[in-house]
């Protein structure tokens, strides 16, 4: 493992349904800080499972997951790691429907030692950064798909993470909105130096990544730098 490795999987196996469904088998992977990685492959190949394990949302049945060299073992350790180091963007946005955009962005901040005023101020600034300063007090049902995903992108930055994990972030968007969200994520990577891992079917997304990992049947098939 190199000194710059921020996320690492070693011999990771993950099964579901009492072992009848093998989602990942013996996966080894190291992601360096500042990488922009695209995980590609057909549906059911294990991209999302891999992303959930990288994001400490799940635990492997065998093998180990490390963040910054530290093993992610135990609920509390994984929870703390997610709160402080990892931001998520999901295909279906996962915004809380009763909360406004401003309130949704503040949700992760409850785990940080910030006052209510600081949380609000920071959320406003993030929403401004993603171009939603006019939508602060709108609820998800009052926003377009692209706007919702931009709220989710702002939320992923709430606690100043080192890594953003995005699971099909453009999967539910029209092409114009998808391009805007992709630009946004790419800008997080470029301007903030964040590590970005994106599970996607979208060739445009994969084309913007600096590294492409292709998966099939729960294994990594190829792991190559993207063509410039």
């Amino acid at each position: 493992m190199s000194a710059e490795t921020i996320l690492a999987l070693q011999g990771v196996r993950r099964v579901f349904d009492g072992g009848r469904v093998v989602a990942l088998q013996g996966v080894d992977l190291a992601i360096q800080a500042g990488d922009f990685v695209a995980l590609v492959g057909p549906s059911g190949c294990g991209k999302s499972t891999l992303l959930h394990l990288l994001g400490a949302l799940d635990e492997p049945d065998a093998g180990e997951v490390r963040f910054g060299g530290a093993k992610l073992v135990g609920t509390a350790v994984r929870s703390r790691c997610r709160a402080r180091n990892i931001g998520f963007v999901f295909q279906s946005f996962h915004l809380l429907p009763t909360l406004t955009a401003l309130e949704n962005v503040q949700i992760p901040m409850f785990e940080m030692p910030w006052s209510s005023g600081e949380r609000q101020c920071r959320a406003e600034s993030l929403l401004r950064e993603v171009g939603l300063e006019a939508r602060l007090h709108h609820r998800p049902s009052e926003l377009s798909g692209g706007e919702r995903q931009r709220v989710a992108a702002a939320r992923s930055l709430a606690n100043q993470p080192q890594v953003i994990l995005a699971d099909e972030p453009t999967g539910n968007l029209d092409s114009a909105s998808a391009a805007r969200v992709l630009d946004l994520l790419a800008s997080f990577h470029r301007e903030r130096g964040l590590t970005l891992v994106v599970a996607t079917h979208d060739p445009d997304v994969a084309g913007r990544a600096s590294r492409r990992i292709t998966m099939r049947d729960g294994r990594i098939l190829t792991d190559t730098p993207s063509l410039p």
């Binding site: 994001g55 929870s79 703390r80 997610r82 709160a83 402080r84 990892i86 996962h94 409850f110 709430a158």
Partner: peptide
Amino acid sequence: TSEIGLLMAVGWRRRR
């Protein structure tokens, strides 16, 4: 369920 999953995904501790 999925909202509670989201809260935990963004790092909420179980006790919260």
